[in-house]
Design a protein around this nucleic acid. Structure first.
Length: 988
RNA sequence: GCCGUGGUGGUGGAACUGGUAGACACGCAGGACUUAAAAUCCUGUUCGCCCUAAAGCGAGUGCGGGUUCGAUUCCCGCCCGCGGUACCA
């Protein structure tokens, strides 16, 4: 009986669905295990062969854990809100909901073919009101919470109000930040208007609204998050992005900076992702310093100081100038009359520079303000400059420049002729760079002679004593932008108190503007449904399409929507209880399933999704909604599967003669790659067989005599669809019908009468004609083969090109496996007692598979199964006592064929609900070992010795060997090494 | 530049804590079965040297050193690929 994968896969797909084999419920008797795949965005293009790599791996893992007796939660759903469907809506008018549903249907049918063990009853979609009701609910939690730094956790905003009511807000309060609002007393608070109160509360809420510099993308008509911007352009579409001040929602993730860092030490993620998160958070310990400004000639009448942040206080004696950002709030006050014209033109220049320009050409530019600060120790006058290399958004927006010990400061000083004072002697550290914190202090008074690290400590203490500075920790991390001026996303459950005009996103904040006081809806009003709009274009003036809906505007609802990560930052919680209407997930379900044990996903979300999910989790933990503070305990990043693009060589041939260069033909002529290489390598002699073949073909085309030495040619590689190429050989018929200009193509084939193609590894994409659809692979080889081949391709975490060279190896294996059960005459399995050798093969394999799955080495699992089948075939094994456990061992990898055989072996339940076989070590113990015998570390011979042989006995036997005698010449070796079970090494 | 990660036959890759480098597969070559093809099975396949075979010798895990009886694995210094990130004070 033949291995008929099509029939087998159809049958069992149906069986699994009918019998609900993959449905899970909470079961207190079994340990839980949560296996999760990263949330896919259902794109219209469907899955290509690269997408399911992680899904196959997680499915194998989930099935294995199930067989091992765990109660496994393995769900799948869709991150269904998003830009592509909306862009499509703008272009075609099709509602994004429709586009999304269609894409989801495609995804689902593709996934079903691959045979995943998802519990589809738990599927979630972020665009479903029953889901986004809870996204909105979580937003309300964020809105109604603040971060209490005393307790180091988020709390209800009510506890803050209570503090304000009883003690007001003092300058010495840990939470107080002078930049946000002035201090006030409890009485003040009581007398504040609701509007004033709300303005202050906005400075503390975890979700708040403020004017912030945002990444405005004119082309998309919307604001982008930092991680959606790459090189000054939008990640999606590559449109230019500019900085703009805009009123919008933000999440106060910065309060969690330290806890997000700390949590990284407790989770099992790849080093590279953890490092990326650390860099993104960008914690740096340093010192906040005051430089008093010399007021001479300035329009300032009181004591005045500039604050700078530095991580290198030790270099204070090397400061020769200060630099403030062009956006610095004191810049105008510090600019003297004489410098004003120059400053104005400099600021005009700075404004004209786009972010892209600033990043690409790092020019050294700057302008002197005309004023000076006073060095706190030397009392010398230090000029104050402004320059675009100092960023307003980081630290205090001002730096103390130390040209001797900072690359940028040095360049600046050199360009503008500012003094440089050497303060660190690095002569003891020849390899050290300017950035390294090593060396001895010089020219630094009381620091002289100290090592850098000691000097930092000494100086910090000194600065704190005299009260001109204090220790400070700074972060690169910014609060997360949470507004999008778009349609296809979650509406905010927010109304505004408005007297008159609705607020405009771009006007500057003015005290009289009451339009921006947000009021949260009640929980009972959720979900606030996304309304219909006439068209999906943003208004263009910075408002979303929702601003075109009359009812929406009349109710003064927020017109922005939430960003993509709103829904995807908590979806893993919803899977535990997806149909709950009273809660985002019931506490008993959350208690049972807890956080994700293993998360399979791409590394591309390192600082987006993965950071926001951790943040949401920590907030919900603080608010006692969940009992864990990290979402994903362990993470595996599957590599990307790249495409292999194929090219045929088009050749343009001319005949060189004394008269002119004659075009031989303007037809499409294509040449086999190997032939082209051969003729290229023999351009001078033109004697080879290749040239003979080539010339003959040209004669045939032109139907006349031609001398090979008169042939000139040029070549152009042309992309062809990968489906026309098998093992580098072009299918000429498919190629001809692909495009009609190809119909008359002429082929110059190689000696085997074939056209070989060239290939190149690139990203898999439609435009490169290198997309491989899993459906096609499955139609040809079956899903089991597809799954196993994806794993066989190499280590999961490594990126690799899809090349179906080799897939027939896996297909052959499956057929071979099948033939252990069926031969020409039919079913061949008996219940005969297996031989010892057969038992040994089985248990060796069980052990290897279990170990390798645990270590996520799926590629070697496939090899191990191949070895097992090869060996059992050689042993002519037909015993069910061997073959049945083997079927179970292989079930996670090839769920269909194993299910078929499991039932043919007489079982009624699903193989996937059985148990993973246990290893019986007794079959694995060996009583002898074959040693490699090394002479001076080089293996020269082999010897088989008993397991328990003594070193002396081994030595005697080894030295007696003929091959060894040859090297020792009978003499006593210098050294004899015997490692039992490992190796013998003779040193002569 | 910085951070992370990788570099092994013609190809994908294997080698778990230093212990027989190249498992398993692809491809290729040869053979068996067959009228033939497909399918299947068997043999060989790191490179070089010796006419061939057996046997052997030499080289060999990006490059150069080191530690060790022994290094793909550990240490030092470089080169290259991939991913991330960058006037972050």
């Amino acid at each position: 009986m033949e291995y008929d994968f099509t029939r087998i896969e159809e049958d069992w797909k149906k069986f699994w669905a009918d019998e609900k084999v993959y449905a899970v419920t909470e079961d207190a008797d079994k340990p839980k295990y949560y296996v999760l795949d990263m949330f896919p965005y259902p794109s219209g293009a469907g899955l290509h062969v690269g997408h399911p790599l992680g899904y196959v791996a997680s499915d194998i893992y989930a099935r294995y854990k199930r067989l091992k007796g765990f109660n496994v939660l393995h769900p799948m759903g869709y991150d269904a809100f998003g830009l592509p469907a909306e862009q499509y809506a703008i272009e075609t008018g099709t509602h994004p909901a429709q586009t999304t549903e269609k894409a989801i249907a495609t995804f689902r049918s593709q996934m079903d073919k691959i045979g995943f063990s998802y519990d589809w009853n738990r599927q979630v979609k972020t665009c479903d009101p029953s889901y986004y009701k809870w996204t909105q609910w979580i937003f309300l939690k964020l809105f109604n919470s603040w971060y209490n730094r005393e307790n180091d956790r988020a709390e209800s905003i009510l506890s803050l109000i209570e503090i304000f009511e009883t003690s007001g807000c003092n300058t010495d309060w840990k939470q107080y930040d002078a930049l946000q609002h002035p201090p006030f007393t409890a009485d003040d608070w009581t007398n504040f208007s609701p509007k004033q109160k709300e303005r202050i509360l906005q400075c503390y809420r975890l979700a708040y609204r403020s004017f912030t510099e945002v990444n405005w993308c004119e082309a998309l008509g919307c604001v982008l998050a930092n991680d959606e911007v790459k090189d000054g352009k939008s990640e999606r579409g590559g449109h230019p992005v500019t900085r703009k001040k805009m009123r919008q929602w933000s999440l106060r993730i910065t309060e969690y900076a330290d806890r997000l860092l700390e949590g990284l030490t407790r989770i099992d993620w790849s080093e590279s992702i953890k490092e990326q998160q650390r860099n993104w958070i960008g914690r740096s310990e340093g010192c906040l310093l005051e430089f008093k400004v010399d007021r001479l000639g300035l329009r300032i009448d009181r004591e005045f100081a500039i604050e700078v942040f530095t991580t290198r206080v030790d270099t204070l004696f090397g400061v020769t100038f200060l630099v403030i950002a062009p956006e610095h709030e004191f810049l105008q006050q510090l600019t003297t009359k004489e410098q004003q014209p120059e400053m104005d033109s400099y600021l005009t220049y700075v404004k004209s520079r786009s972010d892209v320009e600033r990043q690409q050409e790092k020019k050294v530019t700057g302008c002197f303000t005309g004023s000076y600060a006073v060095h706190p120790f030397t009392g010398e006058k230090v000029p104050i400059w402004t320059a675009e290399y100092v960023l307003a958004g980081y630290g205090t927006g001002a730096i103390m420049a130390v040209p001797a010990d900072d690359e940028r400061d040095r360049k600046f000083a050199e360009k503008f002729g500012l003094p440089i004072i050497e303060i660190i002697d690095k002569s003891m550290h020849p390899g050290a760079t300017i950035e390294d914190k090593v060396g001895q202090m010089i020219n630094s008074r009381f620091l002289d002679g100290m090592e850098v690290t000691d000097a930092i400590e000494t100086m910090t203490k000194r600065v704190e004593e005299i009260g001109i500075g204090k220790r400070q920790v700074n972060y690169k991390l910014r609060d997360a932008s949470f507004s999008r001026q778009r349609y296809w996303g979650e509406p905010f459950p927010i109304k505004y108190v408005v007297h008159g005009q609705p607020d405009s996103p771009f006007v500057d904040e003015s005290e009289n503007d009451e339009a921006d006081i947000p009021v949260a809806l009640n929980e009972s009003e959720l979900p606030l449904l996304l309304p219909e709009v006439e068209d999906f274009k943003p208004t263009g003036d910075g408002r979303s399409p929702l601003a075109k809906n009359e009812e929406w505007v009349n109710n003064n609802y927020e017109t922005d929507i939430m960003p993509g990560y709103a829904g995807s930052s908590w979806y893993f919680l919803r899977y535990t209880d997806p149909h709950n209407t009273d809660k985002f997930a019931g506490i008993d379900k959350l208690n049972y399933w807890q956080n994700v044990d293993i998360y399979f996903g791409g590394a591309e979300h390192a600082v987006g999704h993965l950071l926001y999910s951790r943040f949401f989790t920590k907030v919900l933990f603080d608010l006692k909604e969940i009992m864990f503070d990290e979402p994903f305990k362990k993470m595996v990043n599957q590599g990307m599967i790249q495409g292999v693009s194929k090219y045929v060589y088009r050749i343009f041939i001319t005949e060189y003669s004394l008269m002119l260069n004659k075009d031989i033909s303007n037809e499409n002529i294509f040449i086999s790659k190997d032939l082209l290489i051969s003729i290229d390598s023999d351009k001078d002699m033109r004697q080879s067989d290749a040239w003979q073949l080539f010339t003959d073909k040209i004669k045939e085309i032109t139907t006349r005599e031609i001398d090979s030495f008169n042939i000139n040619y040029t070549v152009q590689p042309v992309r062809v669809d990968v489906s026309f190429v098998e093992n580098d050989v072009l299918n000429e018929d498919l190629f001809r019908v692909w495009r009609h200009e190809n119909s008359g193509a002429i082929f110059i084939r190689n000696s085997e009468d074939k056209i070989l193609c060239a290939s190149e590894v690139e990203k898999m994409s439609k435009s490169k004609y290198n997309v491989v659809n899993p459906d096609d692979v499955i139609a040809k080889y079956g899903a089991d083969c597809f799954r196993m081949f994806e794993m066989f391709l190499g280590p999961l975490e490594q990126s690799k090109p899809w090349d179906d060279k080799g897939i027939n190896g896996v297909f052959n294996f499956l057929k071979k496996f099948w033939r252990l059960f069926y031969d020409d005459k039919g079913w061949r399995v008996t219940d005969a007692e297996p031989t010892l050798a057969e038992y040994k093969v089985l248990h060796k394999t069980i052990k290897k598979i279990a170990d390798d799955i645990e270590r996520l080495n799926f590629n070697t699992c496939i090899s191990a199964l191949m070895i097992a089948v090869n060996e059992l075939q050689t042993l002519k094994c037909n015993s069910s006592k061997i073959l049945q456990p083997l079927v179970v061992t292989m079930a996670p990898f090839a769920p269909f064929v194993t299910e078929e055989l499991w039932h043919k072996l007489g079982n009624l339940d699903s193989v996937h609900a059985s148990g993973f076989p246990t290893v019986e070590e007794k079959y694995l113990v060996e009583d002898s070992h074959t040693y490699g015998v090394s002479i001076n570390g080089k293996v020269r011979a082999e010897i088989t010795l008993p397991k328990d042989i003594t070193a002396d006995a081994a030595k005697a036997q080894v030295l007696a060997m003929e091959q060894v005698q040859k090297w020792t010449a009978g003499a006593e070796p210098k050294k004899f090494i015997f490692v039992p079970g490992k190796i013998v090494n003779v040193v002569v």
